[in-house]
Simulated scan of single mutants.
Amino acid sequence: MTAPRTVLLTGAAGGLGTLMRELLPPYGYRLRLFDRRPVEGEPDAITAELADTRALREAVRGVDAVIHLAGISLEAGFEEIVRANIEGVHHLYEAAREAGVRRVVFASSNHAVGFTPRPADGSGAIPVGAPRRPDTYYGLSKGFGEDLASLYWDRHGIETVSVRIGSCLPEPASVRMLSIWLSPADCARLLHAALTAPDVGHTVVYGSSANTRLWWDLSSARALGYDPQDDSEPYAEALLAAQGALDPANPGHAHLGGTFCTDPPRWQH
């Protein structure tokens, strides 16, 4: 697939969207921005809810691909999650189908498999085909998004790469994040690979850097042409000294989803 020239970036005002607004254009993309909040410094950005199907149809018109980051990124009430993350992603795919957009990159999450026990070491042992075990309504909605993407590939021929993002921050903030950290630069590399790889159909990949303590298998991401350059290990000594090692008896340490697996869930990606 030739590199798309114009890409709709939903969720452009969010933390990840803000990082990608800076890091994706050097790959040759012209970004069209969409968010429910105004995007600071971007007067041409489209400000609308995902429920605004007219605005979504205008947003996708003439774009080559979509990077869908919009929606609720933490746990919330079931009705809120349904509106933003389930109905919202359906509106997005319907708009893409009507406009003839052939490629979507969907921001899924590690929380779609959050109750998967973490490996005891950095073995990268969790395959992308492991059964989904969502840890929250949020994680449940990401599994729905992956299935919707699969449906729109089989029924309508829209290709999607669903990226189960770990923690995309400038640096990891916890010992758990040493295993799932995705540096912003590597995130841009992964999104570029997802936009340009040929014949992806519907592909699910984990999104992280090449971390020494990696918990999951990056082979499906690497098959797209993703070549991660960063590793969380330089941050390990300070984080371990401040927080201590992960305790397998602690529910927030024992599972892939971290504190999303506690009751009530707590919010560190």
Rank of each mutant, 00 (worst) to 15 (best):
G88D: 10
H68W: 06
A84F: 07
S73P: 06
G71K: 09
E58I: 00
A51I: 02
E75L: 04
A51V: 04
G71L: 08
R61P: 00
V105N: 08
I86C: 13
V66M: 07
L56T: 06
R57V: 02
E87L: 13
L50Q: 07
A95L: 03
S73L: 10
T47Q: 13
I67M: 11
G77S: 14
R83P: 00
E94W: 12
D64K: 10
T53C: 07
E58V: 02
H90E: 13
H68F: 04
R103A: 11
A107G: 09
A99I: 02
E49K: 10
E75V: 04
V101A: 01
A95P: 03
L50R: 10
V104M: 15
E58M: 05
A99Y: 03
V89E: 01
R57G: 14
A55L: 12
A107H: 09
L92N: 04
A65I: 10
A70T: 11
R61W: 10
H91G: 07
E49D: 15
I72K: 02
R57P: 02
A48I: 11
I46H: 04
E58P: 00
E58W: 03
E75W: 06
I81H: 08
D52S: 02
G71C: 07
A51Y: 04
R97A: 12
F78V: 12
R102I: 03
L69D: 07
N85Y: 08
L74F: 12
T53G: 08
A84V: 08
H91M: 04
A65C: 09
I86H: 02
L92Y: 03
A55D: 13
V101H: 11
E58Y: 01
A95R: 06
A70L: 12
G88S: 09
E87G: 07
F106S: 04
V66R: 07
R61F: 01
R83Y: 00
A96L: 00
N85W: 06
E49N: 13
H91W: 05
I86V: 15
A59T: 05
I81T: 12
V101S: 04
V104K: 00
R61E: 15
I72Y: 01
N85P: 03
V105L: 08
V63A: 02
I67C: 06
N85I: 00
R83K: 11
I81R: 05
E98H: 09
Y93I: 08
A107L: 11
S73Y: 11
A96V: 14
I67T: 00
R102W: 01
H91Q: 14
G71W: 05
I46S: 03
V82Y: 14
A96D: 01
Y93D: 08
G88T: 11
L50P: 06
A76E: 14
G71P: 05
I46K: 06
E94A: 14
A84T: 10
G77D: 15
G77T: 14
T47H: 01
V60P: 09
G71T: 05
A76N: 14
L56C: 07
V105H: 08
T53Y: 04
G71Y: 04
I72A: 00
A76H: 13
A70S: 14
V60D: 03
L56F: 08
